[in-house]
Write a protein that binds this DNA or RNA. Structure first.
Length: 559
RNA sequence: GCCCCUGUAGCUCAAUGGACAGAGCGCCGGACUUCGAAUCCGUAGGUUGCGCGUUCGAGUCGCGCCGGGGGCGCCA
């Protein structure tokens, strides 16, 4: 990338300046090349002269001049400027920029790809929640972040696997089964009580009725324990995962693998990992329970693995699960996407990594802040067990998948966001996603119009992009060229929110170009310019479609 | 009490330690007689919660205070 090439060139220039005695000998701080916020400061900028002042014991402006003096000329750099207090600003060469249109057209749907991952395997696990009810709208943030992160990492050259972990073992599933059984029995006219901490949501009633209608009273005939288990399994498999799949489908999310917690037990992974931990002396017996000695490995406290009842807890499964990911399946890097309500688990997960003989950095825990829900300015309190949830599917009905996805993605992972259902419904048409999509549809329309005027792709194939010299044309090309850098940044920082912001920016830049430059001209003398601009328009379509694709929303030809 | 995240325009949110803190929505005013007005142009709106400090330079880093969210279970 240009940014990296520039960094290297500057570093070389510094060394050369030192050899030629323009600069004293000193260990240069790392060269940082950034994109200035302000267009008048050029396309790239470095503060290395400012950073070096204290080591070189020279005025930054003088250092900057010395560096620039030794900078070799290259095809892509147009102008180099030195600005007080010591910034060196680079402007890309206009002719070189124009040629980038061809680069983008050649890259096609791979425009934006970056060689960062070098094919390294990474697993992104997201969406995993207790499968005891439909997906909640706040949880939508989890799947959208995870899925977009996976898209970005794939674009950045990683080999990505997307996984959903089905927690189909443990006490919550037990409770879910009991709740379902009670509602099922009620549906068949029996007098049955919900368990103490049972799931009280209306959806359990609905599911129970559906099961009663489809299967009759066969579960009442069975042994109670077996019936609860069978209903729990059926509920998870058909009802919960059914709704998860359908929500994900609507959001354009497709998993590579659905991993069952229970398989860890049936395939012996759990037992194996426990004996491993025992061998390595990470287990302690205390008060009839088996504890993991997390404190010895930097955890904040020890954790129960197997309760005194003999039942393994959630964390025990998690250890076995991650053993499976890293050791059995050989992932070098694993990313788990968790809500802030799980932040307290981070230390014990890091301790677990050490206990398994793995580097803690191999496991990245993305902790996103929770979405607080409002309805007309009032807080909406939520509880899956109490049944007061707002289903993701309802919001998808009201607002639409593209707007939901875009909205949930726009905030940084660390910032909590407020989702006002009333406002979201009212303003769904104002969602910025439509602004971006409109730009894409507008481009499609221009290309259609061009084809009608006999400007088909074949007829402008020999257009000369060197004719693109209008400031708005060049601004648009500059903006398109940022895409790979945005992808790289989003991948390195695991920060998907940069994408929707960039998308809006790109769309705005296109609209400005459209305002200033007539594309399809009826003047015969404009024929060559029309060809060049059609190429530019085509390349913007490529860039817009790509970023929309990464965000996971559609790029419509018409709207 | 301790730990994590956070406080930026009326609202929802951006800003890899850099240059005049930016968008969208909302408000007000303007632009469709050749490519899509779901667009564009313009106006207003800020002591970046408060106070110290580090730095050539702080919305960004450190410390303290105040406010918001989350966590600290043989639940997940």
């Amino acid at each position: 990338m240009i940014k990296d090439e520039l960094t290297t060139l500057i570093a070389k220039a510094i060394k050369k300046a030192q050899r030629k005695r323009d600069l004293p000998k000193y260990a240069s701080p790392p060269v940082m090349v950034e994109r200035p916020k302000q267009a008048t400061h050029g396309d790239y900028s470095t503060n290395v002269a400012l950073q070096s002042a204290r080591y070189a014991r020279m005025a930054p402006m003088k250092i900057a001049r010395a560096i620039v003096k030794r900078l070799p000329s290259t095809e892509f750099i147009g102008q180099v400027g030195i600005v007080h207090p010591g910034f060196i600003n680079f402007t890309l060469d206009a002719g070189w920029l124009a040629q980038q249109v061809e680069t983008i057209r050649t890259a096609g749907e791979r425009w934006g790809d970056v060689d960062l991952g070098l094919g390294k395997r990474v697993q992104v696990e997201y969406g995993s929640a207790n499968p005891t009810g439909p997906l909640h709208v706040g949880f939508g943030r989890n799947v959208v972040i995870g899925d977009t992160l996976a898209n970005v990492l794939a674009a950045a050259g990683y080999e990505v696997q997307r996984e959903y972990y089905v927690n189909n073992a443990g006490t919550q599933i037990q409770l879910f089964g009991q709740s379902l059984y009670a509602r099922y029995a009620q549906a068949l006219g029996q007098d049955a009580a919900l368990p103490e901490d049972g799931y009280r949501g209306q959806y359990i009633v609905e599911w129970a009725e559906e099961i009663a209608r489809a299967e009759g009273d066969k579960y009442l005939q069975m042994d109670h324990e077996d019936a609860v288990q069978a209903l729990a399994d059926l509920g998870v498999r058909e009802k919960v995962l059914g709704s998860v799949r359908s929500d994900c489908e609507r959001l354009g999310i497709h998993y590579d693998n659905w991993f069952l917690e229970r398989s860890l037990y049936s395939e012996g992974v759990f037992d194996h990992v426990m004996s491993l931990l025992r061998q390595e002396d990470h287990l302690v017996l205390r008060e009839g329970a088996v504890w993991f000695n997390a404190k010895d490995l930097g955890g904040d406290k020890d954790e129960v693995l197997i309760r005194s009842t003999g039942q393994p807890g959630y964390f025990a499964s998690d250890i076995a699960y991650h053993y499976d990911k890293f050791i059995r399946r050989g992932f070098e890097w694993v990313i788990d996407v968790w809500g802030a309500d799980h932040q307290g688990h981070v230390p014990r997960m890091k301790a677990m990594m050490q206990a398994l003989g793995l580097a803690p950095e191999q496991l990245t825990l993305i902790i996103y802040q929770l979405v607080t829900l409002k309805e007309g300015g009032e807080d909406v309190r939520l509880s899956k067990r109490a049944g007061t949830i707002v289903r993701l599917s309802e919001v998808l009905d009201d607002v639409g998948p593209d707007a939901v996805r875009f909205f949930l993605l726009t905030s940084a992972i660390d910032s909590q966001m407020e989702f006002d259902l009333t406002l979201a419904r009212e303003q769904s048409q104002e969602n910025p996603v439509y602004y971006v999509q409109y730009a894409h549809a507008r481009i499609a329309s221009i290309l259609r119009h061009a084809a009608e005027q006999d400007w088909s792709a074949e007829r402008y194939a020999d257009g000369d992009v060197g004719l693109l010299i209008h400031p708005s044309e060049l601004t648009l090309i500059r903006k398109m060229r940022e895409l790979p850098e945005v992808v790289e940044m989003a991948a390195m920082k695991l920060a998907p929110h940069h994408l929707p912001h960039y998308a809006q920016d790109l769309a705005a830049t296109f609209h400005a170009f459209y305002r200033d430059c007539r594309v399809v001209s009826s003047e015969p003398s404009d024929a060559e310019l029309t060809k060049a601009r059609l190429k530019l328009v085509e390349s913007s379509k490529i860039a817009l479609a790509r970023v929309l694709g990464l965000i996971g929303v559609s790029a419509p030809e018409r709207m």
